[in-house]
């Protein structure tokens, strides 16, 4: 057995098995665990509070995808079509933040958006507002944090498929009288479907389970499922319930990846047609 198979088994598979095991236990008094088979945790999956938080996480992750898609398509299109010799540099600038501390990047937004942050200080000094605007700890600040964190995940696959796009197809469309708008929506977009799908999955999956962004930029009103699950492990110590919720989250993400593979993800839509 190769070392990586060993590592995978011991540090990924067995821990996941333990999560499954815990999800069938129940909680005793003071956070202890009663080791007896029970479906209690799964009954609590329908807890209205959990469903509400799950719904909100889903909504925020979906909005993140939409915004990243719009901004990402713009950047990817521009680099692919107008990047010229600076293509590699521009792409490198997209990837660079991904290698910097994710915690510090989110913290940087706190310093911009907090009551004593840069934006509120400027607005107050200029006399535009008297009271600081509540920019932090709401769903909008969480959304900003998610878009900021996961935008590179959208740009890279979009760029890959736009860069491979055969320009002569666009010229042919133009020769046949298609307007710019038609060429974009009827030629470019369908031919880059692969990139759009991959990017959307790569942004949606980590966004819905995000822990740190709602932890630092969200408040009680912007609770997301990732933070909700974490609280079951750190604060309230309800491990069986936390395990069941984690499995539910993981199942959703894996189902999504499965759907994506079935929709032809992983392969480029354009190559398939050839």
């Amino acid at each position: 057995m190769s070392p990586s198979a060993f590592w995978l088994l011991v540090f990924t598979m067995i821990p996941m098995g333990i999560v499954v095991y815990y999800s069938f236990m129940t909680r005793g008094p003071w956070g202890t665990i009663i080791f007896e088979f029970s479906l209690d945790s799964y009954r609590q999956v329908f807890d209205p509070l959990f469903l509400k938080i799950m719904g909100r996480s889903f909504k925020l992750a979906a909005l993140t995808v939409v915004i990243c898609l719009a901004a990402g398509y713009l950047i990817a299109y521009w680099i692919a079509f107008y990047g010229g010799r600076r293509k590699n540099l521009l792409l490198f600038l997209v990837i660079l933040p991904f290698w910097t501390s994710y915690l510090v990047r989110i913290y940087a937004w706190m310093t911009l958006l907090s009551d004593h942050g840069l934006i509120n200080t400027f607005l107050t000094e200029w006399g535009l507002i008297d009271e600081p605007l509540p920019l932090l700890h709401n769903q909008y600040s969480v959304l900003v944090g998610l878009v900021y964190t996961y935008l590179p995940f959208m740009i890279l696959p979009l760029y890959a498929s736009l860069d491979r796009l055969d320009r002569s197809v666009l010229e042919a469309a133009a020769d046949l009288g298609a307007t710019a708008r038609e060429r974009f929506f009827k030629v470019t977009v369908p031919l880059t479907k692969g990139g759009i799908l991959s990017g959307s999955v790569l942004v949606f999956a980590p966004s819905i389970g995000e822990f740190l962004v709602p932890e630092l930029l969200g408040g009680a009103k912007a609770m997301m499922v990732g933070k909700f699950i974490a609280l079951k492990f750190i604060g309230l110590r309800h491990w069986p319930l936390g395990s069941a919720y984690s499995l539910l989250l993981l199942t959703m993400i894996l189902a999504l990846i499965y759907l994506y593979m079935r929709a032809g993800g992983g392969k480029d839509a354009y190559q398939e047609q050839q």
């Binding site: 990586s4 198979a5 995978l8 540090f11 990924t12 067995i14 821990p15 996941m16 333990i18 999560v19 815990y22 999956a205 980590p206 819905i208 389970g209 995000e210 822990f211 990732g226 699950i229 974490a230 492990f233 491990w239 936390g242 395990s243 984690s246 989250l249 993981l250 993400i253 894996l254 990846i257």
Partner: peptide, 27 residues
Amino acid sequence: LYQGALYIPLVMPDLVIGISLLLFYTS
């Protein structure tokens, strides 16, 4: 299958990886 399994940690939310390891170590 092996190659696919190897990439599982890349698609799992960090939170789930962290929690599963916490439960593993505690167990």
